[in-house]
Amino acid sequence: MANHALGAPHVSGPQPTEKTLVVVETSAQSAPLVQVGGNEWPDRVFSWTMLLCGLSVLAIVALIIVELVTKSNLSWHAFGWRFFVQSDWDPVNDQYGALPFVYGTIVSSVLALVLAVPLAIGVAVFITEMCPRWLKGPLAFTTELLAAIPSVIYGLWAIFVLVPLLREYVQPWLAKYWGWTGLFEGPPYGIGMLAAGIILAIMVVPIVSSMTREVMTAVPQQQREAVLALGATRWEMIRVGVLRNARAGILGGIILGLGRALGETMAVTMVIGNRPEIAKSLFAPGYTMASVIANEFSEATGDVYLSALVEVGLALFLVTIIVNILAQFLVWSVTRGTPARANG
């Protein structure tokens, strides 16, 4: 074997004694055990396959866009922008205006957020800042469980429990004391915008509260200690040391909840009443973009009808995408590297 001996004199080091050296026959001299010079094709094939899987994510989103855009073309050409400002939805005469759905979607989602956000932040504050350690895990798990319940089960529960409750007790009371606002007028059906808003609120709470919890945990402990050291009460510490630092992230969580509420289908469809009308009263039935697709898509007979439904879907898609991207950026701004001002 050609050794580059470097003209090295045989160096006197501590020589190993024979008895400590385990002498076992080695095959290092003979042919190598494992084949050397393996080719690089398997590696290349593997990385290409993984790349393909990664690209499939892009392909799916591209496909969604292409599908929605091409299939809604007919309706877009027939109605243009009028589609979103007209309120007749008349399959018999092939006239379609999506305003009632847009209205229903926005009102039910906003109502849901108004109800859910204070609760969600309350829960997050309790879990991260107040709750005894032993209760933390179970509570977090329970709120997670709330997120795992399928939409259709929320709907089922809402139909048979929430709606009667609203009809018998809540709505008469609201009408009596708050009827003058105009928001709580008309016959108390139970079913309607209010029911949809409440069930959406219940579904959105876990999302908003878990995002809030995440960004609150990301606030460095020193921030809390700094405020406490100034002699603040616990609430003042939470308000100044935690919520203020985490506010962008909490806003992100709220917007993420909005995204979920906008696209939520089944539970809303089951309790909102499914009537394409715009009414001021929250007792009145309404309709949302997602539920009109759910109810009418498989029955839509005419080409324009189907195309109009897909256009509703396209609009819903674009809105939820924008909302979600906005939310992601806000959450990232907190969890990825604390804002510069926190470090001075």
């Binding site: 074997m1 050609a2 190598p32 494992v34 050397v36 010079g37 393996g38 080719n39 690089e40 590696d43």
Partner: peptide, 18 residues
């Protein structure tokens, strides 16, 4: 390394096996 030219004509993987 011995007779192996590490940066020329041999794959990284087979170098590391030796």
């Amino acid at each position: 390394i011995g007779e192996m030219d590490v940066y020329n004509g041999t794959s990284a993987v087979s170098i590391r096996r030796r």
